[in-house]
Amino acid sequence: MLTANSVPADTFKRSYLLDIPLPTIPPANPTGKTLLVSMPKAAPGFDTPGQVYIRTAYQLEYYSKSQWVDTPARMLLPLLVHRLEVTGQFQAVLSATTSTIASDLRLDTEIVRLQQEFLTYPSQVRLVLRAQLLDMEARQVIATQVFEIVENALSENAEGGLLATNQAVARVLKDLAAFIVEQVTKIRRVLEE
């Protein structure tokens, strides 16, 4: 009979979460618009729970004993929703996985890159996120932005990549929220004119 004690320790995979501090959500803005955050997409090679790294350009590799608990895109959705709720700009921020209600605005995102790069020392995590804000009533794109965040890893391994990834995610969410608030403010000004 095989027990946990009889299996060599190096056969177990470690599974990691995207885990960042989540601020308290203020009351909803009753005069704000509703925002639907669609399920983030990921570019080919990055739509996997595998923790990606590169040692040479153009060649993706995956840690054999470390992985994400789910794909980074799926783990990003609740963090996006929460960070946008914290802005206090919206009547409601809805998640595409839990809501079928029509909304005023929709946010589409795509992870273009999320990789630990061993091209420099210390290694770095690069997160590239494309965001597109759409007006659902007018059926048009309001704004598109690409965010690129690079964070140094604290150690040259999967755990160092994990910590740098969490820092990169926190930064990109802050930048994305500021971008969305700026766009919503522009919309509000146009409507007031």
Rank of each mutant, 00 (worst) to 15 (best):
S103D: 00
L105N: 02
L105V: 03
L105Q: 02
L105M: 02
L107K: 04
T109C: 02
I111D: 03
V112E: 10
L114T: 00
Q115Y: 02
E117I: 07
E117T: 09
E117Q: 15
E117M: 14
E117V: 03
L119H: 11
L119M: 13
T120V: 12
T120C: 00
T120L: 10
Y121V: 10
P122G: 10
P122R: 09
Q124L: 06
V125A: 02
V125N: 03
V125R: 03
R126K: 11
R126E: 01
R126Q: 09
L127Q: 01
L127G: 02
L127V: 01
V128C: 03
V128K: 10
V128P: 00
V128H: 04
L129Q: 04
R130W: 02
R130K: 11
R130H: 08
A131R: 08
Q132R: 13
L133I: 04
L133T: 04
L134A: 08
L134Q: 10
D135R: 12
M136V: 08
M136H: 03
R139H: 11
R139G: 00
Q140G: 08
V141L: 14
A143N: 06
T144P: 00
T144M: 12
Q145L: 06
V146T: 15
V146P: 07
E148K: 15
V150K: 13
E151V: 09
A153R: 07
A153C: 15
L154T: 14
E156I: 02
E156L: 07
N157D: 15
N157P: 07
N157E: 06
A158L: 06
E159I: 12
G160S: 06
L162T: 01
L163S: 01
A164N: 03
A164P: 01
A164G: 00
N166V: 05
A168S: 10
A168P: 05
V169C: 12
A170P: 04
R171N: 14
L173C: 13
L173G: 14
K174Q: 15
K174R: 15
D175F: 13
L176F: 13
L176R: 10
A177F: 13
A177G: 13
A177H: 12
A178F: 12
F179I: 05
I180R: 11
I180S: 11
